[in-house]
Deep mutational scan, measured.
Amino acid sequence: QTVVIGDTTYHLNNPEAAQQIAKELAKKYGLKVVISGNTIKLK
């Protein structure tokens, strides 16, 4: 699972954790979560 935040890319072996982290950050910073395949992007 790949999480992309701005110009930073994180690789996590746990998809659920990756999605949870993405949701928390999106909520905290008012970002939009875009999931395509096994890549999660925060914009």
Rank of each mutant, 00 (worst) to 15 (best):
Q1E: 06
Q1Y: 15
Q1R: 09
Q1A: 14
Q1F: 15
Q1I: 15
Q1G: 09
Q1M: 15
T2P: 05
T2H: 07
T2D: 06
T2F: 13
T2V: 12
T2R: 08
T2L: 10
T2G: 04
T2I: 13
T2K: 12
T2M: 11
T2Y: 13
V3I: 14
V3Q: 02
V3A: 03
V3G: 02
V3L: 14
V3T: 03
V3F: 10
V3K: 01
V4C: 15
V4Y: 07
V4L: 07
V4P: 02
V4H: 07
V4G: 04
V4F: 05
V4R: 07
V4S: 08
V4A: 04
V4W: 07
V4T: 11
V4E: 07
I5W: 14
I5Q: 04
I5N: 03
I5C: 14
I5K: 03
I5T: 02
I5Y: 09
I5L: 07
I5P: 03
I5M: 06
I5A: 01
I5R: 03
G6M: 08
G6Q: 05
G6C: 11
G6K: 04
G6H: 07
G6V: 06
G6Y: 08
G6S: 05
G6L: 08
D7T: 14
D7N: 14
D7G: 13
D7S: 13
D7F: 14
D7V: 12
T8Q: 09
T8A: 09
T8N: 10
T8V: 14
T8R: 14
T8P: 05
T8M: 13
T8Y: 14
T8D: 06
T8H: 13
T8S: 07
T8W: 15
T8F: 14
T9D: 02
T9A: 07
T9G: 02
T9F: 06
T9H: 07
T9S: 08
T9Y: 09
Y10V: 08
Y10T: 02
Y10R: 01
Y10G: 03
Y10P: 01
Y10S: 02
Y10A: 03
Y10I: 14
Y10Q: 02
Y10C: 10
H11N: 08
H11L: 08
H11V: 11
H11I: 11
H11F: 13
H11Y: 14
H11P: 03
H11G: 02
L12Q: 01
L12E: 01
L12M: 10
L12G: 01
L12V: 11
L12F: 15
L12I: 12
L12D: 02
L12C: 00
N13C: 15
N13E: 12
N13A: 12
N13V: 09
N13R: 09
N13M: 11
N13L: 14
N13H: 11
N13Y: 09
N14T: 13
N14K: 04
N14I: 11
N14F: 11
N14M: 08
N14S: 14
N14E: 06
N14C: 07
N14V: 08
N14A: 06
P15L: 12
P15K: 10
P15N: 08
P15C: 14
P15Y: 11
P15T: 10
P15R: 10
P15D: 05
E16P: 01
E16R: 08
E16H: 08
E16N: 07
E16C: 10
E16G: 08
E16D: 09
E16Y: 10
E16S: 07
E16V: 08
E16M: 08
E16W: 10
A17C: 11
A17S: 08
A17H: 09
A17V: 12
A17G: 04
A17T: 13
A17Q: 12
A17F: 10
A17D: 12
A17Y: 10
A17K: 10
A17I: 12
A17N: 08
A18W: 14
A18G: 02
A18L: 11
A18Y: 10
A18E: 01
A18I: 13
Q19M: 15
Q19P: 03
Q19L: 15
Q19S: 08
Q19T: 08
Q19V: 13
Q19D: 06
Q19Y: 14
Q19I: 14
Q19R: 12
Q19E: 10
Q19N: 06
Q20L: 11
Q20R: 13
Q20H: 10
Q20C: 15
Q20D: 06
Q20S: 08
Q20P: 00
Q20I: 09
Q20N: 07
Q20M: 10
Q20T: 10
Q20V: 07
I21L: 15
I21D: 00
I21K: 06
I21P: 00
I21T: 02
I21Y: 11
I21G: 00
I21E: 01
I21W: 15
I21S: 01
I21C: 15
A22Q: 02
A22D: 00
A22V: 08
A22R: 01
A22L: 12
A22F: 09
A22M: 09
K23C: 13
K23Q: 13
K23D: 12
K23S: 10
K23L: 14
K23W: 13
K23V: 09
E24I: 14
E24F: 15
E24A: 14
E24W: 15
E24S: 10
E24M: 14
E24T: 09
E24R: 13
E24P: 00
L25S: 00
L25M: 05
L25V: 03
L25Y: 04
L25A: 00
L25W: 07
L25F: 05
L25P: 00
L25E: 00
A26P: 00
A26T: 03
A26V: 04
A26N: 03
A26L: 13
K27R: 10
K27P: 02
K27A: 13
K27L: 12
K27N: 07
K27W: 06
K27T: 10
K27I: 10
K27C: 10
K28Y: 11
K28G: 00
K28I: 07
K28R: 09
K28N: 01
K28W: 09
K28E: 04
K28M: 07
Y29I: 04
Y29G: 03
Y29E: 04
Y29Q: 05
Y29H: 08
Y29D: 05
Y29V: 04
Y29M: 03
G30W: 09
G30F: 06
G30T: 03
G30D: 04
G30C: 08
G30V: 03
G30P: 05
G30A: 06
G30S: 03
G30M: 06
G30N: 09
G30K: 08
L31A: 06
L31D: 06
L31H: 06
L31R: 00
L31M: 11
L31W: 10
L31G: 04
L31T: 04
L31N: 04
L31E: 04
L31P: 02
K32G: 06
K32P: 04
K32D: 11
K32S: 13
K32W: 08
K32I: 15
K32Q: 13
K32T: 14
K32Y: 11
V33D: 00
V33H: 01
V33Y: 05
V33T: 01
V33L: 12
V33A: 02
V33K: 00
V33M: 11
V33G: 00
V34E: 12
V34D: 06
V34N: 04
V34L: 07
V34P: 00
V34H: 07
V34G: 01
V34M: 05
V34F: 10
V34A: 04
I35Y: 07
I35T: 03
I35S: 02
I35R: 01
I35A: 02
I35H: 02
I35N: 02
I35K: 03
I35P: 00
I35M: 06
I35W: 05
S36T: 11
S36R: 06
S36I: 13
S36E: 14
S36W: 08
S36A: 08
S36M: 11
S36L: 11
G37V: 04
G37N: 05
G37I: 03
G37W: 04
G37F: 05
G37T: 01
G37K: 02
G37S: 03
G37M: 04
G37L: 04
G37H: 05
N38S: 08
N38T: 09
N38H: 05
N38R: 01
N38M: 06
N38Q: 06
N38L: 06
N38D: 08
N38C: 03
N38W: 05
T39F: 05
T39I: 12
T39C: 13
T39P: 00
I40E: 01
I40C: 01
I40D: 01
I40G: 01
I40H: 00
I40F: 03
I40N: 00
I40L: 04
I40K: 00
I40M: 01
I40R: 00
I40Y: 03
K41R: 12
K41I: 15
K41W: 15
K41N: 10
K41C: 15
K41G: 03
K41Q: 13
K41E: 14
L42N: 02
L42Y: 04
L42V: 09
L42P: 00
L42A: 00
L42Q: 01
L42R: 00
K43Y: 15
K43H: 13
K43L: 15
K43C: 15
K43V: 15
K43P: 06
K43R: 09
K43Q: 14
